[in-house]
Design a protein around this nucleic acid. Structure first.
Length: 796
RNA sequence: GCGGACAUGGUGGAAUGGCAGACACGUUGGUCUUAGGAGCCAAUGGGCAACCGUCCGGGUUCAAGUCCCGGUGUCCGCACCA
């Protein structure tokens, strides 16, 4: 008598067994080959696990489970990236301490994750808000201070008026705060910065060492934004000042008919123009604009000429006017440009608006009509000693000339900016620095770490740009660790990205009290073999953590230059209406509800079967039913009387397909292959077939497989059984059906023995009725035979 | 503007240059049922057909969804980056 497939009974039962037996715990003793599979650890928010989590987790869980069955010693950990604004905001709103909020949320997340049957290592959780963890985050920061990689500087930064804290460049998306979408403002603030720019070239070069998807590597390359050019000095006529510009096209210097400096450029103060008031007004207006307004809205060129100021074009010797305009950014290059309106659309627009001369220096276009920018190649004109040279040669000639005359030098620039590494909020790692009136900034000694967050009553942010910690006088006021005089603590905290920049190292040795992780553990587990995560972190966490890892490599903590061998990225699941899933729209699903109704195994199958793992897809209620139906049929088949075996070929083909598809994250086609095999098995299969099938399915739908494995008397646990191996010889049939084409069009098929010689195949094809009729007694002019695939008969 | 990806039935999606539409959903018909929005069986790209079919137009090839050239459209990332 077949029992009902009752997921609510089966699933918790096996989850407990797995946990009690420690099935998912990585071993430090095992001499099996190791495999480190990593997913991005979640931010444990108040609303619990959401739709975004199960897909990457399940995908990597399939891989981790398959690897264990394949005999690897697998590290597949999870943790909690629990610092950050949402916990703090939630805490403020509900008047609960953030630490308590985190404790509750983590508990909920842990339970939800377990209910999905995810095989995360229960013995290696990390939590970025645990002082024993952030002690090491602080320790790494101090190492950076020591090496001059962390510094404090007064500079214009992005300020989110809604979050009330500064933002890193990477956190500003289209001029808006990445988190709350408020327009980011400019503020001049003294900030802790990390010198990620020092690693720009290595972060770029070492992409070679990383097996990243093309789009990830391209995006990082783009973000680092390397460009080659030159700096050229333009003297300011009648003064000792020079204007230093950066250009990628020094060869066009003869076409520079005016100059533009950014409104923030210091030259305006050094050389006051005659129209100082007008210039000041323009600068003030520019300062008021947000980045959003400056870059997104104001594409029309505006500016003010600095009257009485002119620069000397070192190539022509001619005097050219100088303008301030907000289309030139202080944050890139030198904040000043030589404008070559003939060959740059922005300069052309500006020149037209202000009636400035436009000179053609590369032949090809008509610069009176528009800027001619197709100048990768071409011949120089109107360019003195460069005339007649090809662009490529002109570049070399100009470079030599600049160096010879001391007028400039070749220069490599990056778009990458240093990383603003301070937040004016409570819920983050305190920056372990003391400001001493005598000694200046003094790092806390290592033995004073962790520097714990103080218990406070009010952790609301202020509008003044100061952290709430600044109001806790008993915490702020301390003594200088160096000289002992009264001093004040740094009150800013680290950004959310700090803890996640090295968490994958801590997993290798999560409870080590004396170092981030032991050398042995790091040697055993690093680098991460396979890291799956979201595209949205490509220029945030993924770049940041590569940077930290390189730093830790330089100071001898880790032994490899790159942390991740292989990176994959899952596509997002959108709502049934094609938009982002949200509870209020009711267009999606709640993982808990789906587990309650259909079971975790069905949910796991559904989110993998719904489409290509690496592409986005829409959620659909329909697919769930199909997956549940499939599991019902597996259940029924395992309870049916066994009979003769399924064809061996089918079995071995499926093993091969599923094994290969797991490696390629083609989970949808792996599941399709198993559905297809089940269709075959329903016609009759042996118990051995079923046991094999269960092993194949087990990484995808582990609970039902475990239950049926036990029912059928499988040895041990299904999740610990060996992974089935296919015999390549058994994946092929003895006979094959050849497609028969006439002039490339399919006209029939013919069955021949495998490996049948070309001549025989062609003869067999010609003997089939349809083909013989079409041939009408003629013999083909040409015959193409693709062994075991097709015969193409060509009649002219 | 720069960089990346993509375009296949009613739907989600499969196809190392070699039988397009695997696998599922849906639909239709049948069956079993007091009942069926459950299960099972069958059919299902279009067309009566010859044939025609993978966004559009060319090309390479015995053979193109797949490769090449030129368009169109969609999505993603970056962007007055000099």
């Amino acid at each position: 008598m077949m029992t009902r497939y009752d997921t609510n009974a089966i699933e918790p039962k096996w989850q407990k067994v797995w946990l009690d037996k420690g099935c998912f715990e990585a071993s430090e003793e095992s001499d099996k080959e190791r495999f480190y599979a990593l997913v991005e650890f979640p931010y444990p928010s108040g609303v619990g696990l959401h739709i975004g989590h199960p897909r990457p987790y399940t995908g990597m869980d399939v891989l981790a489970r398959a690897r264990r069955m394949q005999g690897y010693n697998v590290l597949f950990p999870i943790g909690w990236d629990a610092f950050g604004l949402p916990a703090e905001n939630y805490a403020i709103k509900n008047n609960i301490h953030p630490a308590e909020v985190v404790r509750r949320n983590v508990e909920r997340f842990r339970g939800q994750i377990r209910r999905l049957g995810l095989s995360f290592d229960p013995a290696r959780e990390v939590n970025t808000t645990d002082p024993e963890y952030y002690k090491w985050t602080q320790w790494i920061f101090l190492k950076m201070v020591e090496k001059g990689l962390a510094y404090k500087a007064e500079m214009p930064v992005n300020w989110c008026p809604s979050c009330k804290c500064v933002l890193a460049n990477e956190e500003v998306v289209g001029g808006l705060c990445e988190r709350c979408e408020a327009p980011a403002e400019h503020r001049d603030k003294s900030q802790w910065m990390l010198r990620i720019t020092r690693y720009a070239q290595r972060l770029l070069d070492d992409l070679e060492l990383c097996d990243f998807p093309a789009r990830v590597a391209a995006q990082q390359r783009n973000w680092i934004g390397r460009s080659e050019g030159a700096e050229i000095l333009f003297p300011i006529a009648g003064t000792d000042e020079t204007l230093r510009v950066y250009t990628t096209r020094p060869d066009t210097v003869f076409g520079a008919t005016y100059m533009v400096i950014s409104p923030e450029h210091p030259l305006v103060d050094k050389c006051p123009p005659k129209n100082a008031e007008e210039a000041a007004a323009y600068r003030a207006a520019a300062a008021r604009k947000s980045d959003f307004e400056r870059t997104e809205l104001a594409k029309d060129k505006t500016g003010v000429r600095l009257e009485g100021i002119s620069a000397v074009n070192p190539a022509t010797g001619g005097e050219i006017p100088v303008y301030i305009s907000d289309y030139v950014l202080m944050s890139y290059g030198t904040g000043a440009i030589m404008a070559v309106p003939g060959h740059d659309t922005r300069d052309w627009d500006f020149a037209k608006a202000f009636g400035l001369p436009i000179v053609e220096v590369v032949k090809g276009g008509d610069v009176t009509k528009e800027a001619y920018t197709d100048t990768e190649t071409g011949t120089m004109v109107n360019s003195g000693f460069l005339n007649g040279l090809e662009v490529e040669d002109a570049k070399k000639a100009v470079a030599e000339w600049l160096e010879r005359e001391g007028l400039g030098e070749p220069k490599v620039r990056y778009k990458l900016r240093d990383w603003v590494f301070a937040r004016q909020r409570y819920w983050g790692e305190p920056i372990p620095i003391v400001h001493c009136p005598a000694c200046g900034m003094v790092p806390l000694p290592e033995e004073d770490l962790p520097l714990r967050l103080p218990e406070v009553q009010n952790y609301k942010p202020s509008d003044t740009g100061e952290s709430p910690l600044a109001a806790i006088s008993e915490w702020v006021n301390t003594v200088c660790p160096r000289c002992g005089v009264p001093a004040k603590r740094e009150t800013d905290t680290m950004p959310q990205w700090a803890g996640s920049s090295w968490y994958f190292l801590r997993y290798t040795d999560p409870n080590n009290p004396g170092e981030p992780a032991s050398k042995e553990a790091l040697r055993r587990w690093m680098p991460v073999d396979w890291y799956n995560g979201g595209m949205e972190h490509t220029t945030l966490h993924l770049l940041y953590s590569r940077f930290w890892h390189k730093f830790l490599y330089d100071v001898g903590v880790v032994e490899q230059p790159e942390p991740y061998k292989k990176r994959t990225s899952h596509g997002f699941i959108l709502g049934s209406d094609g938009t982002k899933i949200s509870k209020s729209k009711g267009n999606g699903m709640d993982p808990d509800e789906v587990v309650n109704t259909y079971g975790a195994d069905t949910l796991r199958l559904t989110i993998l079967f719904i489409g290509d793992f690496e592409k986005g897809c829409r959620w659909s209620e329909q697919i769930i039913k199909g997956c549940r139906r499939f599991l019902e049929r597996v259940w029924a088949a395992a309870h049916s009387p066994f009979a003769s075996s399924v064809p061996e070929t089918k079995l071995h083909q499926t093993i091969q397909k599923v094994s290969g598809d797991i490696e390629g994250m083609k989970f949808n086609t792996a599941i399709a292959a198993m559905m297809s095999l089940l269709n075959e098995m329903e016609k009759g299969c042996s118990k051995a077939d079923m046991l094999l099938f269960l092993r194949l399915l087990s990484p995808f739908a582990p609970h039902i497989c475990e239950e049926l494995w036990a029912l059928l008397g499988g040895k041990g646990l299904c999740c610990e059984a060996g992974w089935p191996e296919h015999d390549p010889a058994k994946t092929v049939e003895d006979t094959v059906e050849l497609a028969v084409q006439i002039n490339g069009k399919l006209r029939g098929t013919v069955t021949v023995p495998r490996g049948c010689p070309d001549g025989e195949a062609a003869a067999a094809a010609l003997q089939t009725e349809k083909i013989a009729a079409a041939a009408a007694g003629r013999s083909p002019d040409k015959t193409i035979v693709v062994p075991d695939r097709l015969v193409n008969l060509i009649f002219r």
